[in-house]
Simulated assay, not measured.
Amino acid sequence: MSEDAQYRVYLGAYTGPESAANGIRLAFADDAGRLRCTDTVADSYDPSFLALSPDGGTLFAVNEVARGRVVSFQVGPDGGLTEINSQPTHGSAPCHLSVHPGGRFLLTANYLSGNVVVHPIGEGGVLREACHVVDHSGQGPDKDRQEGPHAHQIVPSPDGRFALAADLGTDSVYVYAFDGDTGHLVLKHEVGWEPGTGPRHLAFHPDGERGYLVGELTSTITEFTFDAKTGEVRPGLVLPLLPADFTGRNLAAEVVVSPDGRFVFASNRGHDSIAVFSAEGFAQLGVVPAGVRGPRHVALSPRGDVLYAAGELSDTVQAFAVAADGALTPIGDPVPSPSPVCLLPA
């Protein structure tokens, strides 16, 4: 890492004939949060979501293809990536993955096939054969997007005792008890959202007692409570992600919570904006231009003082300074990067 760099940011992308991307890129952030992108550090097909092991020594990526795969990479001292191995996801179009807090299991959501899968992680970041696959079932009222289950995310609860899967196709959040010894999932609760919501992604508040879920199809965000003892999820207040006068097409995308727990940020594709909310009292503070087209993903710097927006359609990444009141101010011009769809500050 260069002397003026404060941290690294890995960029996942969609590859293929319509994209100039050919894998995972690496960028370095200076003390102001400005990015300097380098070349591709790992050739990989459609690495559309990325995650790091708890110790930072291994990076995991999906290959969002018809016969889905997950790949593990060793992270070098300079941030370079060396492929370790890969495994099939036993599903189609894996679009999200996360690492269990214990570092021994990788959890993946397969979008097209509507199932979730768990892979053990061996010594040195080696992925073992899948130990558990769970299929979702059901549908929603949107005939184009909800004709069947579409698992869009699976994340562990903060203490690792549960795993929560958001399914866009069934308007549900599935809460699984997670066995930390075997990696098996046992369904405890299936929590229904308003029909047609299209649950996409959720993020926990640092207190572990609440969280926020974005509905892709309704452009809304729902605050929910979470019981760490039982895994029970209770949806609460629902707020819009868009200004009241916007009438165009929009798809909500990502949601993140600031490390201090004061603010929640969510991105809009179509309106191409970022909605800002206060966590205390849960209220919208404003909606600001994302500075990119199609902000599929947003991510915060390790300290939470910079927010990055990945513009899938503009081939750019925009950085924002996060003020003490949650206000976002662009940091310089958007930085070119082909088809960015995931940002992973490390």
Rank of each mutant, 00 (worst) to 15 (best):
Gly33Arg: 12
Cys37Ile: 15
Thr40Gln: 11
Arg36Gln: 14
Arg69Gly: 08
Leu26Lys: 03
Thr38Cys: 04
Asp31Cys: 09
Gly57Gln: 14
Cys37Ala: 13
Glu64Val: 06
Val41Trp: 03
Ala66Leu: 08
Val41Lys: 05
Gly68Met: 07
Ser44Ile: 09
Ala32Gly: 11
Ile24Gln: 11
Ala66His: 11
Ser19Tyr: 01
Gly23Val: 10
Pro17Ala: 13
Thr40Asn: 06
Phe49Ile: 08
Ser48Gln: 05
Ala61Val: 09
Asp46Tyr: 07
Val65Asn: 12
Ile24Ser: 12
Gly33Thr: 12
Ala20Cys: 01
Pro17Met: 10
Asp31Gly: 11
Ala32Tyr: 06
Cys37Arg: 09
Asn22His: 15
Asp46Arg: 12
Ala21His: 05
Pro17Gln: 15
Cys37Leu: 15
Val41Leu: 07
Pro17Cys: 08
Glu18Val: 07
Ala32Glu: 14
Leu52Thr: 07
Leu35Gln: 05
Arg67Asp: 15
Leu26Asp: 02
Gly16Arg: 13
Ser19Val: 10
Ile24Thr: 12
Ile24Pro: 14
Ala20Glu: 15
Arg25Gly: 14
Asp55Ala: 02
Arg69Met: 12
Leu50Lys: 05
Leu35Trp: 00
Asp30Leu: 02
Arg25Phe: 11
Thr38Asn: 02
Val62Thr: 15
Pro47Tyr: 00
Thr38Ala: 13
Ile24Lys: 14
Ser44Trp: 09
Glu64Gly: 07
Tyr45Ser: 12
Pro47Phe: 02
Ala20Ile: 01
Pro54Met: 04
Asp39Gly: 15
Thr58Val: 15
Val41Ser: 03
Gly33Ser: 13
Pro17Leu: 10
Pro47Met: 07
Ala42Tyr: 05
Glu64Phe: 00
Arg69Asn: 08
Pro54Ala: 03
Val65Ile: 15
Arg67Trp: 06
Leu52Ala: 11
Pro47Ser: 10
Glu18Asn: 13
Arg34Asp: 08
Leu59Ser: 00
Asp55Thr: 03
Ser19Thr: 12
Phe60Pro: 08
Pro54Gln: 10
Pro47Val: 04
Gly23Leu: 11
Thr58Met: 03
Asp30Tyr: 01
Ala32Phe: 05
Asp46Cys: 11
Thr38Ile: 08
Phe60Thr: 04
Asp30Val: 01
Asn22Pro: 11
Ala21Gln: 08
Ala29Pro: 02
Arg36Val: 09
Asp30Gln: 05
Val70Gly: 10
Val70Lys: 06
Ile24Val: 15
Thr38Asp: 11
Leu59Asn: 00
Pro17Arg: 15
Val41Phe: 02
Ser19Glu: 09
Cys37Phe: 03
Gly16His: 12
Ala27Pro: 01
Ile24His: 13
Gly68Ala: 06
Gly68Asp: 06
Pro47Lys: 06
Val70Phe: 03
Ile24Arg: 13
Ala21Pro: 09
Gly56Glu: 08
Ile24Asn: 12
Ala20Asn: 14
Leu50Gln: 09
Ser19Cys: 12
Ala21Phe: 02
Ser48Gly: 09
Leu26His: 02
Asp39Trp: 00
Pro47Glu: 06
Phe49Pro: 12
Asn22Asp: 15
Val62His: 04
Gly16Leu: 10
Ala27Arg: 04
Leu59Glu: 00
Pro54Val: 01
Leu26Thr: 04
Arg69Phe: 07
Arg67Ala: 13
Leu26Pro: 00
Ser44His: 13
Ser53Ala: 13
Phe49Ser: 10
Phe28Ser: 13
Pro17Trp: 09
Arg69Tyr: 07
Gly23Cys: 11
Thr40Pro: 02
Ala29Asn: 03
